[in-house]
Design a protein around this nucleic acid. Structure first.
Length: 258
DNA sequence: ATGGCTGAGCTACTCAGA
């Protein structure tokens, strides 16, 4: 099955692009982030018409995450961690992969900039709570797929010019160490797992011709527990949606697993 | 290069993103 993660930067502003993408790619499950709408305004009908169920944890104006899925996702929850600011940043559910009960965790990690503000503190405490909960989760379920917009550049090769980002909330060592902590729980960065030292990005700023100059960064990830490695087939960053008219600033990553 | 786009909410302009 094909599982996709995409920060769409508003599901309503992006609806045509998303429907085109679905038609071209035919994914089984999509993890959406930054839907920027409340549940009642989510375009569930448009997705229903294409054969997808919607599972939404929305919020007015900002944030918001959702699953789209051709088949039912069980045990949908939005209380994986207690969010101090009550922002809609995690939705979880369960599916079967190769008869293994697998937990899907769709996340939109706080950006954290500027670093000398409470926004940065929020990102750190959010990540600390998240790591703690993932660790606990792994004691009861060894089949996890965590994906979404992590707002973390894991290593120097994951950004066009790392020196520019050394004091940025996406690349500060303190934040990258949180990512490593997560990995060290027994999770695998699947893009790296398949691609060695290849340099590809999932995000390009709207301004200053970042896309045209390929001034990007890899901040959207798939982390998969070791127990599921044998089921992985491929991973792909699909740059096509970023090249279209009225694009999101992020592009989808596509995981093939069965 | 701490903001030069973009979106939401709203109908003038702020907040947020990365």
């Amino acid at each position: 099955m094909k599982i996709i993660s995409w920060n769409v930067n508003s599901v309503r502003a992006r609806i045509e692009n998303i429907l085109d993408y679905i038609k071209e790619t035919n994914p089984d499950i999509i993890f959406l982030q930054e839907i920027k709408t409340q549940n009642e305004n989510f375009p569930s009908e448009a997705f229903k018409n294409k054969g997808y169920n919607s599972y939404v944890f929305g919020q007015k104006s900002y944030n918001g995450v959702a699953f789209l899925s051709k088949t039912k996702i069980e045990n949908i929850k939005n209380d994986f961690i207690r969010d101090k600011l009550k922002q809609s940043r995690i939705i979880t559910g369960e599916i079967l992969i190769d008869k293994k009960k697998t937990k899907l965790i769709n996340i939109y990690v706080p950006n954290g900039n500027p670093v000398d503000t409470e926004k940065y503190e929020y990102k750190k405490s959010w990540l600390t709570s998240f790591i703690k909960k993932v660790k606990k989760e792994l004691t009861i379920n060894s089949n996890l797929i965590i994906s979404g917009d992590f707002n973390i550049i894991p290593e120097e090769i994951d950004v066009y010019d790392f020196k520019r980002y050394e004091n940025d909330a996406l690349f500060k060592l303190e934040i990258r160490k949180k990512y490593r902590e997560l990995i060290n729980l027994g999770l695998n960065d699947i893009y790296r797992y398949f691609n060695g030292s290849k340099q590809e990005y999932t995000f390009w700023d709207y301004f200053a011709g970042s896309w045209q100059k390929n001034y990007g960064m890899r901040i959207d990830h798939f982390l998969v527990s070791s127990n599921l490695l044998e089921n992985l087939r491929s991973i792909n960053i699909n740059k096509k949606p970023r090249s279209k008219v009225k694009p999101s600033d992020h592009t989808p990553i596509e995981l093939e697993i069965n």
